[in-house]
């Protein structure tokens, strides 16, 4: 079974890579079969990656997101799932390319790390851990999509290109991504707080990871309100989505890799 993991990992990566190349071609040549094939490839890559994740979960007996390899693989899976959600709902085609680029980047670095499953320490042996981590990365993936839509909104406003979706749709998608990301991240924070309470004896930690996670929540809570204020609609909201994703990236990678925290990645 372990030997199956590597071909699944590489096959999924190959499918995502081809999909991104086809989407890029579609941007310039505008052939329907290109985006259809690209979409089929993303779907195939996602299925293979899901199988790989499921296999690792079954082998380990726990959701394997306890180290950098595991979290990056899961994050890239969540990004692909988010892309598929928007593609199936709104037919965004190449407009979700940024998310797929992020996915490829993460996946590329995953392939260079050891896929070995670390033993699960008792402190992580709880469903609260599974819920906390999976909801966190699902939220991050929607924030990445919001970033992508924010960048495209600003580009479209400047270029007025026929290659990109219209401004109203981009704004709607951005707001939906922020709303869904915030909802999932709120649930992640709730489960994380309950877990912190039973593991450490307090539900809010002043560790830098805890402080920045609260900041991410507060920032996106503010964004869920800002969309009702005329001045912040459109470009302002797009700019906030870009800044927000910077805060998310620092919270996940900056703190996890560069600082000493209670959420170490390796």
């Amino acid at each position: 079974m372990t030997s199956l993991q590597t071909p699944l990992l590489y096959a999924a990566f190959g499918a995502y890579l081809l999909a991104v190349l086809l989407y890029l071609l579609h941007l310039t040549l505008r052939r329907d079969w290109m985006w259809r094939s690209a979409f089929a490839l993303v779907l195939a890559g996602f299925t293979l990656q899901s199988l790989c994740l499921g296999l690792r979960w079954w082998q380990g007996g726990y959701l394997p997101v306890t180290n950098l390899f595991g979290t990056q693989l899961f994050f890239s899976w969540a990004l692909a799932a988010t892309y598929l959600y928007f593609e199936l709902r709104y037919k965004i085609h190449a407009a979700g390319l940024f998310v797929m680029f992020c996915n490829l980047l993460l996946y590329g670095s995953v392939l260079q790390r050891s896929a070995e499953l670390p033993p699960l320490i008792p402190a992580l042996d709880t469903p609260l851990f599974t819920l906390h981590v999976s909801l966190s990365f699902a939220g991050y993936a929607f924030f990445a999509m919001a970033f992508s839509m924010g960048v495209l909104y600003l580009l479209q406003k400047r270029l007025q290109s026929g290659l990109l979706p219209d401004l109203m749709l981009l704004r709607k998608l951005n707001e939906e991504a922020v709303f869904l990301g915030f909802s999932l991240f709120t649930l992640c924070m709730i489960f994380g707080s309950i877990w912190a309470y039973v593991a450490w004896g307090y539900y809010f930690s002043w560790n830098i990871k805890g402080v920045w996670s609260a900041l991410v929540w507060l920032f996106y809570a503010g964004m869920c309100h800002a969309k009702f204020i005329r001045r912040w609609q459109g470009s302002g909201y797009a700019a906030l989505s870009i800044v927000g994703f910077g805060v998310v990236l620092f919270t996940y990678l900056g703190i996890g890799l560069l600082m000493s925290s209670n959420h170490p990645l390796d």
Binding site: A214, L215, L218, F219, A221, G222, H225, V247
Partner: peptide, 13 residues
């Protein structure tokens, strides 16, 4: 709400 949330976020960052 937005002014307060922004002020807290910036200060805590």
């Amino acid at each position: 709400s937005i002014v307060l949330a922004s002020a807290v976020t910036l200060m805590a960052i």
